[in-house]
């Protein structure tokens, strides 16, 4: 798996230029790699930059936003040097995206069938008839037993879960290498959510895609991701495997997030809420962006922003607690203190 990076993002910066010379640093120096066949999750709270990261990969950033730095390489090819015509080809064909609200991508005035046929014919040299056959096949694949009828229905005639299935059919219609799913199940009820996420994973296996899964739901991460990026304030604060993020949690923000979460398995009297709230992207503090909310904040944290450093072969964290003495002695530092607090 490791040898085969599909997408490599490095030093990505996407800023929004607001009134009064404010600059919202929505994505501010993000690096990560997605390997072939891998599901990489981005988690974080509202406004942490998850969606802007994925929209930047698709180059769907509109004014006043702008990608100001970095490279985004798809199989070694930097997408940021492509013309908009070339990008149109790449979107849908090599990288596809599904959204929380399928209606943002489905056109209400065209039937489901005609929209997917359109998408296929834009990218593949198929006759109308062959494209229609392919769409019926796809709709069957994503779990529409009455695919032929659904072809002629309009998006509003479908339920939320069915629309999301139609979106998935459209997204996989050209065998993309990478599928970006931004909160694909957030608007759905849990029983439907499970159906949709299972379907995505089944399609991933079948088509050998990689998935970038954007979510705020740590349960979804635990069940579906291989690796995880935790974002806070436009940056990655922790990156590791799905096991390690839950069992060897390092960053004080991630620890706080996990303790905030009520769970079905364990019973706690009080939830370990993180104090305060996320700073807006145009008002990040000079030092660590989590400093105002962090129970371990030190003088140094207010001075400068820590780097995202490797603390184990497959584990990175952006926090001075793990930089001080370096290595193992500080391994459980944040966690034990957090536990003592409770």
């Amino acid at each position: 798996m490791k040898e085969n990076p599909v997408l490599e993002v490095s030093n990505l910066k996407t800023y929004f230029y607001l009134e009064n010379n404010f600059v919202a640093r929505a994505v501010d120096g993000v690096d990560f790699t997605i390997h072939q066949g891998e599901t990489l999750a981005i988690v974080g709270e509202s406004g942490s930059g998850k969606s802007i990261t994925s929209l930047s990969i698709m180059q769907l950033i509109n004014k006043p936003g702008k990608i100001v730095d970095g490279t985004i390489c798809l199989e070694g090819d930097n997408l940021l040097t492509k013309s908009s015509k070339q990008m149109t080809k790449i979107r849908g064909n090599d990288i596809a995206m599904i959204f929380q609200e399928p209606m943002t991508a489905l056109n209400p005035v065209y039937t489901i069938g005609s929209q997917i046929v359109e998408t296929i014919r834009k990218h593949k040299n198929l006759s109308k008839h062959a494209a229609r056959e392919r769409v019926i096949e796809l709709l069957n694949l994503v779990g529409f037993p009455r695919a032929k009828e659904v072809m002629n229905e309009y998006p509003h005639q479908l339920s939320g879960g069915m629309r999301q299935r139609a979106m998935i059919a459209m997204a996989i219609s050209c065998d993309p290498k990478l599928l970006i799913a931004d909160e694909p199940s957030t608007a759905l009820d849990v029983t439907i959510q499970a159906q949709i996420l299972d379907l995505l994973m089944e399609m991933k296996e079948r088509l050998n895609m990689s998935i970038l899964l954007v979510t705020h739901d740590l349960g979804v991460v635990a069940e579906y991701a291989d690796r995880v990026l935790v974002m806070y304030g436009g940056q990655i604060v922790e990156e590791t495997t799905v096991e390690a993020i839950f069992e060897e949690t390092k960053h004080p923000y991630t620890i706080g997030l996990l303790e905030s979460l009520p769970s079905l398995e364990k019973e706690v009297k009080r939830l370990g809420a993180i104090k305060g709230s996320v700073p807006p992207a145009y008002l990040f503090p000079k030092g660590c962006r989590f400093a105002d909310r962090c129970p371990h904040v030190m003088d140094q944290c207010r001075e400068s922003n820590p780097e995202l450093l490797s603390i184990a072969p497959t584990h990175k964290a952006r926090c001075y607690l793990y930089e001080l003495g370096g290595g193992h002695s500080h391994d459980n530092r944040a966690k034990t203190t957090a536990e003592q607090k409770i």
């Binding site: 959510q193 996420l197 740590l218 349960g219 635990a222 839950f246 996990l258 979460l261 769970s263 398995e265």
Partner: peptide, 8 residues
């Protein structure tokens, strides 16, 4: 049973 669990 459908609630995603954080127990990995």
């Amino acid at each position: 049973s459908s609630v995603p669990s954080t127990n990995v």
